[in-house]
Simulated assay, not measured.
Amino acid sequence: MELCVSMWSVHRKFYNEGWTVIDFLKLCRDADVRHVELLDLFWRDVATELPAVLRFIQENDMTVAAYAVTNDFVSVDASQRAVELQSVRRGIDFARELRAPVVRVFSGDLKEGYDFESAFSYIVEGLKAAARQTDDGIVLALENHGLLAGRGDQVKRVIQEVGSDKLRSTFDVGNFYLVGQQPMESLAELSGFLGHVHVKDFVKSEVGLPATTGEYFAGVACGSGIVPFQDILSMLEAIRYPGKLSVEYEGDGDELEGVRQSLSFLRTLQEQMGTA
C-alpha cells in the first residue's frame, strides 16, 4: 500500500501563510511522496493554478489519489440540495482532469432538528444522484465524519441504501474515536466497501476535538497516539485493499514536522511488516 498525503495536513499553511497547491506538491515531492490528495477548498485562482498543477504532477511523476469535495446534503430546501449536488458534480469534473480515481464526499453537518435518522433520506437522495453522474473509473468515497454518518454502521447503511458500486467508504482511522467506536471494529464493518483510507493519530486530551463519549482528543503525528496502526495495516493487507494510505495530519504542532514524522513512522512500520 503506497503512501499519500492529504493537503488538509497543511491547511494552516494555506490559510495563515499563503501556501498554494504547488507549495504543497513541492513538499510532497521533496518528501519522496508520489501520491497526493487535493481538496476543493484550496484553490485561490483555479483557472491559473490547475494547468500549473497538472504540469507539476506530470513533470514530477506524481498522481492525485483522491480529490475531496466539501458538500452537505442535509437541508429541507431542495434547491440547496441541488447546489450541493452540483458541487459534487464539479468535483467529479476536476477528478477527471486530475486523473484522480476517488472523489471524497461527505453526508452533511448536524443541525438543529436533525439526527441521523431524520437526515438519512436527504443523504441517500444526494449520494444516489451523485453516483448516477459519476464517470467510469471514478468512485465517490463517503468519509466517516461528524455525527451524520460518523459511525461505521451508519456509513455502511448509507452505502447499501444507495446501492451503487460508485459509492464506497473513505475510512478515516481516527474519526471513529469521536463517535465512541474503535477503528478495528469499524474496519470489520466496512472492509468490503473501502475506496480510500485516511491515516491520522489521536491522543486523549483535556481539550481538543469533542467525542460523543464526553472525552476529548487531540491530533498527533502517526505512531504517537492511540491508533492501532499495525492491526489496521494487517487487516488492510488481508482484505487486499487496493488504494493508498493518505496521511491527514491534524495536530496543533508544526504541520510540516507532523507530516514528516507520520511518513517516517508509516514507512518504518510497513518495512517491518513487509507491506511496503
Rank of each mutant, 00 (worst) to 15 (best):
K13I: 01
N16A: 10
I22G: 10
D23P: 02
F24T: 07
R34T: 12
R34H: 01
L39K: 10
L39C: 14
L41C: 04
V46D: 06
V46Y: 07
A47G: 12
L54P: 03
R55E: 12
R55G: 03
E59A: 15
D61M: 06
T63N: 10
A68T: 14
A82L: 09
F94Y: 15
E97K: 13
P101K: 04
V102R: 05
R104S: 11
F106I: 00
G108N: 04
G108H: 05
D109L: 06
D109G: 11
K111G: 10
D115F: 12
F116H: 07
F120L: 10
F120I: 12
S121P: 06
Y122A: 14
Y122L: 11
Y122G: 07
I123Y: 09
I123N: 13
L127T: 02
Q133V: 01
T134W: 09
D135T: 12
D135G: 10
G137T: 10
G137L: 05
I138F: 11
L140S: 04
N144A: 07
N144L: 02
G152T: 06
V158K: 01
V158I: 15
I159S: 01
E161F: 04
K166P: 02
L167F: 05
S169W: 00
S169N: 02
T170A: 04
G174S: 14
N175I: 00
L178K: 01
L178R: 01
Q181V: 01
M184D: 03
M184C: 09
G192I: 08
G192L: 06
F193H: 03
L194C: 03
G195P: 01
H196T: 00
V197G: 09
H198W: 02
V199F: 07
K204Q: 13
P210V: 00
T212F: 15
T212G: 08
T213N: 09
T213M: 13
T213W: 14
G214T: 02
F217T: 05
V220P: 13
A221E: 02
C222T: 12
G223T: 05
G223C: 13
G223S: 09
S224D: 15
S224W: 15
I226N: 08
V227D: 06
I232E: 00
L233E: 02
L236M: 14
A238H: 13
I239H: 07
R240Q: 10
V247A: 13
V247H: 08
E248L: 05
Y249S: 08
E250L: 11
G253H: 06
L256H: 07
R260E: 12
L266F: 06
L269D: 08
Q270H: 04
Q270Y: 05
Q270N: 13
Q270G: 11
E271D: 14
Q272D: 14
M273K: 09
A276G: 10
